[in-house]
């Protein structure tokens, strides 16, 4: 079912940055291609987004990694400090653990 059929706003059409409200739309994409959209303020700490995403996918926030432009996101980062633009993407990676011989 598409977004339009579900009644959800699509990224290109309905979810627009609200002028004057200083909010942007951010897409969080997992390594398996699942997408979650966020509409947050430029000043909102991304740790909140991370926590909400982890809660949504049912994982511990410490077991997943969030990267913007290939760089890990810090707890104190905000869209403004990272110069994020509307409809930017945050990549999500699963924690990797290992040893060696």
């Amino acid at each position: 079912m598409s977004q339009e059929e579900q009644g959800l706003p699509t990224q290109d059409n309905d979810v627009k940055p609200e002028e004057g409200n200083n909010t942007i739309n951010i897409k969080v994409v997992s390594s398996t291609g699942e997408e979650v959209f966020f509409k947050i303020k430029q000043s909102t700490k991304l740790i909140k987004l991370q926590s909400a995403y982890a809660s949504k996918v049912g994982k511990d926030v410490n077991s997943i990694r969030f990267l913007y432009d290939g760089v890990r996101i810090n707890d104190d980062d905000t869209p403004a400090t990272l110069d994020m633009e509307d409809n930017d993407t945050i990549d999500v990676m699963v924690e990797q653990v290992g040893g060696t011989s």
Partner: peptide
């Protein structure tokens, strides 16, 4: 594809 929208208010 799983689409889901979380608003600013939802983060509180």
């Amino acid at each position: 594809m799983d689409d889901y929208i979380i608003d600013e208010e939802d983060l509180q």
